[in-house]
Design a protein around this nucleic acid. Sequence first.
DNA 1: ACCTGAACACCGTTCAAGT
DNA 2: ACCTGAACACCGTTCAAGT
Lengths: 207, 207
Amino acid sequence: MSAERPAGPALNRDYIIRMALGLVDRVGIEGLSMRELGVELGVDPMAVYYHLPNKAALFDGIVEAVYAEVDVAPGASGDWRELVANFMRRLREVLRRHPRAVPILATRPSYTPKSLADQALGSLQAAGLPPRRSLDIVACLGAYTIGHVLAEVSPPAGGETATAEEAAEPMAPDTFPHLARAVAGGYRGDEQFEAGLRAMLAGFTSD
Amino acid sequence: MSAERPAGPALNRDYIIRMALGLVDRVGIEGLSMRELGVELGVDPMAVYYHLPNKAALFDGIVEAVYAEVDVAPGASGDWRELVANFMRRLREVLRRHPRAVPILATRPSYTPKSLADQALGSLQAAGLPPRRSLDIVACLGAYTIGHVLAEVSPPAGGETATAEEAAEPMAPDTFPHLARAVAGGYRGDEQFEAGLRAMLAGFTSD
DNA sequence: ACCTGAACACCGTTCAAGT
DNA sequence: ACCTGAACACCGTTCAAGT
């Protein structure tokens, strides 16, 4: 996470990517430009192009960097249900540490999540589940987890233009009556995520 | 879907948005610029600003337009489980008709999905489910559906730079052994989506 | 009311040049 | 090997002007 300037040459790929992720965390995706990144690095903006071919590669690097924070406990043992559930909880935690980067991850496919999926798949197949069924479970729970985080980190409807008042207000009961009633108790992201996670897992278990 | 030129003035908000969605469908989000849209409309690019305040509003309009295609059967009756499942299937269908627009929908919150959620919530509460539980079910199944579609419409890992050969190849078995085995039977998006949908629904039912 | 077109402050990327 | 800086072809948006 900390980004120390390398010893020899001023720049390298990893350092650039960590700084870029930091920039996204602070100012959002819109704020990340090659030129602004140059300022951040204290270097001519074009210097980055010596280490990375283009901005797309920079995004790919950011995706990698975030997923790399998901260190699934290596020798974890126990019921496969708990293993998968903990994996998804860990994934959610990491994504929520980089809310403004989540749209990139959700949108730009990368090899790193495949690697994570492969590990998770390994646990399930080791527990005796057939390959195709393991894939369904990992893919569907992964889709749910990312979808849920995406909804959580999205700015409130109405956009940046919405007044702070509107955002603070609970919800107009006349426009969305059922939603208003359901949300009256306040938003409970953690409990809701757990509810869905357990539901899907239970459903996959008892077939 | 069809975009007929309005009779009186050359432009109006709806026509502009329908054309913009068509442009996104054809050339992707990157290809949608205010200037290119102007060309598409056969009009000075700046004319759009008379009808929409900025590009963000254009995106919001696109999100609305896509969600508007989700016409949940109004008087549908039956088991609430089937109602919700059909709603999610319908949502998935519509999103898959606009693959290149999905990243926008997944990323830019809007009021339209809230309206859809409110309808779905109404069915569940009418069926006797408590408000908070209804919300969990709709929110979690919605998150799952969007997450699943997002994974389906994402371009293959390796990006546009990947050669056609790489994309065609099944999967390197040495890098992701478990994934390779699980995916050997080919990708079955529909069955996988159904599996996850039924699993989560079953899990929410038998508590 | 509705559209045009010049202008401004930005972009990403290329490429020759510097050290 | 590594970084600089000018240049090119784009952007979104503002605003005065046209009809």
